[in-house]
Nucleic acid binder design. Sequence first.
DNA 1: AAGTGGTCTAGACCACGGC
DNA 2: CCGTGGTCTAGACCACTTC
Lengths: 240, 240
Amino acid sequence: MAQGRRNGTPAYQRIQGAILKRIEAGQLKPGDAVSSERELARIHGVSLMTARHALATLESEGLVERRRGAGTFVAPPKIHFNKLMSFTEQMASRGLPACSKILSSSILDDEPDIAARLALPSASRLIRIERTRQAADEPFALETAYLSAEQFPGLTRAGLERGSLFSALQQDYGVVLAHADEEIDATAADPKSAELLNVARGAPLLRIRQLIFSITGKPTIYMLGLYRSDRHTLLIRRFR
Amino acid sequence: MAQGRRNGTPAYQRIQGAILKRIEAGQLKPGDAVSSERELARIHGVSLMTARHALATLESEGLVERRRGAGTFVAPPKIHFNKLMSFTEQMASRGLPACSKILSSSILDDEPDIAARLALPSASRLIRIERTRQAADEPFALETAYLSAEQFPGLTRAGLERGSLFSALQQDYGVVLAHADEEIDATAADPKSAELLNVARGAPLLRIRQLIFSITGKPTIYMLGLYRSDRHTLLIRRFR
DNA sequence: AAGTGGTCTAGACCACGGC
DNA sequence: CCGTGGTCTAGACCACTTC
């Protein structure tokens, strides 16, 4: 029979799909045993190597754990460390009410450094959006985002008040964000930031400069964030 | 013949080792083609599936890229984002000379908060090691590590001057570290830290508190680090 | 002892890339 | 066209865990 593709999808992907469906439906919970290689091979009418391949790649994606002699088990809930989330998503995931206020939204045409980071010609027109972020009526962050004015015409007036910048890019411009490289350090609050964040001048702030890439690999947003360190800590997980 | 293990190592790992050796020796540079599946199978006297497995897992580890119809190529220089590395490893990977100085090394028995983070009974005896880290003759970090005194007897005097804490744990106690959860914020330098780091009192510092886990999942080291923000930035990459 | 994952064989056909 | 990686078969033995 050769490829057991009934519909163009490789057999091992169909098997993975069947398992993922049961996990998403809640029939399989973390720690539960998944069908064994031999069982999957029998059920789906494939060879052992194919069933094995399905489980092996699910393991490398962190969805299941395999223990020799014991079986294959649904992996513990994935922890959302190091996830690229919009502010709105972050707050929602913590169950906190969030709001943000746009301080300014303008078009610049002489920011060669930032244009370069976005891989644009030096004199490109850029949208700059300055926002404060607050939770529980207290501002805790100041974020300035830069995007290509050419790529996102009309963004300045778009529905940034009602939703997140991330979802606006996706819904209005079809741009899906994939990952961000961030540079993190500490800095002292300058007078303007101090006032906006309601802290003393010179107070330590966490500074995060991030370059956010779309799934096509194109640098899309450059964002500078200043965070009150008494209201915000960054959690990351790193691996060997 | 069944398993082609000549020395207990699986054949696919021997093949990977041979490839990695050539990469490390500089014979293969990023972008260079690696031997094809069929070639590897012939050279090492294994079946195609085995050679394939060797390349497939190297790919999932990000060491090579495979392009259908074209071949397998050494992956571009690995970016060490979000990697758990010892200070010594970090500096070495940047080609910088590094050194550290142990300020104190002592045993404490009344640090219930820290003991709790390490999942130890409140009154556990803890080793505390305070070090400054420096590069180019200037201190840029102050790190305080806490470990179980019971788990690591004699560590205080062990060869921390000659090598890294990470490698000492691995070589002398067989403990291999796997990942770390970190909490990052900004703080102002207190008088003592300011003096040790040679900055003004109140200067902003990047503070990283990390709990480092071994491969067995046991919390093993609690480390508090203070970093001069003018000499050190943290780079991370996050994904959707 | 029975069942599981880990490794391996010696082939096969397909889809794709570059010449 | 030829070589590449992608998928797949129908078995095999080994090492390990669980009972």
